[in-house]
Amino acid sequence: MDLFLQLFFNGLTNGSYYALLGVGFGLIFATTKIVHFAYGPIFACAAYAAWWAASLGVPLPLAGVFAVAVAAVLGVASFLVIYRPIQVRGAPGLVALIASLGLFILLENLLGIVFGAGNKVIENVNYDVFFLGPVFFTSIHLWQIASLAILGGALFLFLRYTRFGKAIVAMTDNREMAEIIGIDTTRMAIAVFAIGSALSAVPAVLILLKDGATTHMGFQAVFMAFVTVVVGGIGSIRGAVVGGFALGLVQSLGLWKIPTEWQSSIAFVVLFLILVARPQGLFGASRL
Rank of each mutant, 00 (worst) to 15 (best):
V276G: 03
V135R: 00
K120P: 11
I42F: 02
A191V: 15
S236Y: 05
F4R: 07
F137D: 04
A170F: 00
G11D: 13
E108L: 06
L142E: 05
L106N: 05
I150F: 11
S264V: 14
P61R: 02
A72Y: 05
I86A: 01
L273F: 14
S78C: 09
L273R: 08
H141W: 07
A38Y: 03
N109Y: 08
T31M: 03
L271S: 12
F79I: 12
G116K: 00
V192N: 01
T260W: 09
L56P: 00
L148C: 09
Q280S: 14
F272S: 13
A53Q: 01
M224Q: 10
P134T: 14
F219S: 04
T260S: 14
S252Q: 10
A285K: 14
P85N: 13
G93E: 08
G153D: 08
A72V: 06
S55T: 15
A149N: 01
V230W: 02
T31E: 10
P59T: 15
I266P: 07
V242C: 02
A38T: 10
N174V: 02
L60I: 15
V88D: 12
A201R: 06
L56K: 10
M171Y: 00
G57I: 10
A72N: 04
R278F: 12
T186V: 14
G57D: 09
A50E: 04
T172P: 01
N124M: 08
A44R: 05
G15A: 10
Y83I: 15
L3P: 01
V35T: 04
G11Y: 12
L80K: 03
F136D: 09
F219N: 01
Q144S: 06
Q251G: 15
V227Q: 03
C45P: 00
A198H: 07
V270I: 13
I234H: 11
L97K: 05
T215H: 05
A240I: 12
A47T: 10
V227N: 03
F268T: 11
F156P: 02
L3D: 14
E176I: 12
N119H: 11
G243A: 10
I113D: 02
G11W: 10
A277M: 14
W143R: 06
T13K: 01
T215L: 02
L12P: 02
V95H: 08
L159P: 01
L282G: 05
K166E: 13
G112F: 05
L60G: 12
K257M: 14
E108P: 03
G102M: 06
R89P: 10
A154Q: 08
V230Y: 04
F8R: 07
V129L: 11
V202P: 04
A194M: 09
G153S: 02
V81P: 00
